[in-house]
Computed example of a mutant assay.
Amino acid sequence: MVRIGQAIMLHRGGDREEARNRFAALWAETDVEADLFHRCTIAHYMADTQDDPADELAWDLRALAAADALDRDRVSRGEHQLAVRSLYPSLYLNLAADHVKLGDEEAARCELERARRRLDALPADAYGEGIRAAIERLEKRIADGAASPGEGRGGPGDGAGPVL
């Protein structure tokens, strides 16, 4: 987790390429079966380092697949149970933002609905309020016609970047 945090800090500091390189190395080091929580976290943040919206979507789908696998694995997920549950709204929000970027308004709306169905898992704190507000902002952008190719995903303030 320390190395994941370092890569996140690099990205937030503006060194997108080095962050992407570190996330790629971490991804290659993780075990597909044993490191599901780490793989989910890595993919969740790796998506934001991508230049191509299709690649961004692919990484967000990897994050969701790891979360789903961890959610199905009731035995080993114990310590990560709450984190995974509260991560789902953000995962779906990111997928919605990816679809907006790719111009697929219908898919974006479906992902936002999935995010809304999981909002009860969010804590009543700054993180939870941030995700709720980001969902509202992205819904408004879609309603205002923002679902066109090339729309940016920015970060948490834009209403879609990961807020783990």
Rank of each mutant, 00 (worst) to 15 (best):
A147R: 10
E29P: 00
I135P: 05
V75D: 10
M46N: 05
I4K: 10
T30E: 13
W27D: 11
F37S: 02
E17I: 11
K140V: 13
D125A: 00
R39N: 12
L70M: 10
V75Q: 09
K140R: 15
D158T: 13
D158L: 12
R22L: 12
E111W: 10
A147Q: 10
V75S: 09
F23H: 04
A58V: 00
A69M: 12
L82N: 02
A97R: 11
L112Y: 06
L26C: 02
G130T: 15
A146F: 04
E17N: 06
T41W: 10
P89Q: 05
W27N: 08
L64N: 02
E17F: 03
R132P: 07
G128Q: 07
Q6V: 10
R20D: 14
R72T: 07
L91W: 05
D98T: 08
R12D: 07
A24F: 00
H80D: 03
G150N: 04
R22H: 03
A124I: 11
D52G: 01
Q81R: 14
A69R: 15
H38Q: 15
R20N: 14
G130Y: 12
R137L: 14
R153P: 00
I42Y: 02
Q81G: 00
R153V: 15
R117T: 15
D15G: 01
E151P: 00
G150C: 04
L122T: 05
T30H: 11
G103M: 11
G152W: 08
T49I: 02
N21H: 14
F23C: 05
Y45T: 02
K101Y: 06
D73Y: 00
A115W: 03
A28D: 12
D60S: 09
D35M: 03
L57C: 07
R77C: 07
